[in-house]
């Protein structure tokens, strides 16, 4: 049994962390939101150099064929830095979708370029993922349902609370695949996207905890750091507990995605529910402990808050994920 990151995974996370720290993500994110995606696209190439974009791509198509746990480790760092761009889509869901579908022509066209960072991709999977995130600034847009996979034709933009998430309505474009192989492939993509999304939520939650701990240690009221008050301490302790016990569910979901198809839905959903709950608790507490300054845009807290508010409800709502667990438990207990 092995359920904690290996030394290699920790080194990978550290390298990614160092690169993203240096990359000045807040500026890149502002540019991405303000219709200047070029710096973000450059950054994407650097992710590719580190291997991030090829993790879920088979070696045959120029990827690393990595374990989903590696994807979790990477996505946690991306969430920690609130990286703009369709990470769950391009790094996790699309490679898994195309690989599972097994259409060599599609794979050959897209997977090598997704892996090397030349192409950033996105997809809509209504009703869980109703809009294709960043569809107006990436070069591969797909639209999938249980029966068909099509190219997506970008339409009107919709505003997101997280202004780096460029939500775009997509209409049906050219048919790429149909038939019984599509449903399982889309299902696998949904699980991969939800897992990547959960990992980003956990990373964002940790970032907020760290930022808030720093602030609580510096901000003085009544002649002492506010972090010295028990009312503040206990809230932050609860945030830490929530994040701490969500992480093993995330790793177990990665294991299930790799090796245990019968429990994948249950385990991915448990990870998504726990990570979203933990991240939302972190967001609420971070805002409360910062007080008014946290509510002000200048504090920068908003990058993580709005990301968490958005990601907690996409790639499957909490209700949908709980329902999948409920079904798995009821079926298991009744048989």
């Amino acid at each position: 049994m092995k359920l904690t990151p290996s030394a290699e995974q920790e080194q990978f996370a550290a390298a990614l962390h160092a690169m993203l720290t240096e990359a000045d993500i807040p500026t890149v994110a502002r540019q991405w939101a303000a219709d200047d995606p070029a710096p973000g696209q450059v950054l994407w190439r650097r992710l590719a150099e580190l291997g991030v974009t090829g993790l879920a791509v088979p070696a045959r198509w120029g990827g690393l064929a990595a374990h989903p746990a590696d994807l979790v480790v990477a996505c946690e760092e991306l969430g920690h830095h609130a990286l703009p761009g369709p990470a769950a889509e391009s790094i996790a869901a699309l490679p898994m979708l195309l690989t599972t579908l097994g259409d060599d022509a599609l794979c050959e066209t897209w997977l090598p370029r997704l892996a090397n960072g030349e192409v950033i991709g996105t997809l809509a999977v209504p009703p869980h993922v109703p809009y294709a995130t960043d569809a107006d600034v990436v070069s591969l847009v797909l639209r999938a349902d249980e029966q068909t996979l099509r190219l997506g034709v970008p339409g009107p933009r919709r505003r997101s609370v997280d202004d780096t998430r460029r939500l775009v309505e997509v209409a049906d474009g050219a048919l790429l695949a149909t038939g019984p192989a599509v449903g399982p492939a889309v299902g696998h993509a949904l699980n991969a996207g939800a897992l990547a999304c959960a990992a980003q939520l956990l990373g964002a939650g940790h970032a907020l905890l760290e930022t808030t701990l720093r602030y609580a240690g510096q901000r003085t009221q009544f002649g002492q750091p506010i972090g010295q008050f028990q009312a503040v301490k206990h809230q932050l302790a609860d945030v830490a507990i929530g994040l701490e016990f969500a992480r093993p569910l995330l790793y177990a979901a990665a294991v299930a995605l790799a090796d245990h198809p019968t429990t994948t839905a249950r385990d991915v959903s448990a990870a998504k529910v726990a990570c979203a709950d933990a991240a939302q608790r972190a967001a609420r507490t971070a805002l409360q402990v910062h007080g008014a300054i946290g509510y002000a845009r200048e504090s920068g807290l908003g990058s993580w808050l709005t990301r968490i508010w958005a990601l907690a409800r996409t790639w499957g709502t909490q209700s949908w994920h709980r329902e999948r667990i409920r079904t798995a438990l009821a079926t298991g207990a009744l048989t």
């Binding site: 049994m1 092995k2 359920l3 904690t4 701490e244 016990f245 969500a246 992480r247 093993p248 569910l249 790793y251 177990a252 448990a270 529910v273 726990a274 709980r322 667990i325 409920r326 438990l329």
Partner: peptide, 25 residues
């Protein structure tokens, strides 16, 4: 009620998996 059963199951599993991680570490 089902949501609370699910929440209890998730938390129990989280503790089990967390302990596996601690023990193997």
């Amino acid at each position: 009620l089902s949501d609370r059963v699910v929440a209890g199951w998730i938390a129990a599993r989280a503790y089990q998996l967390h302990s596996y991680g601690t023990a193997t570490q």
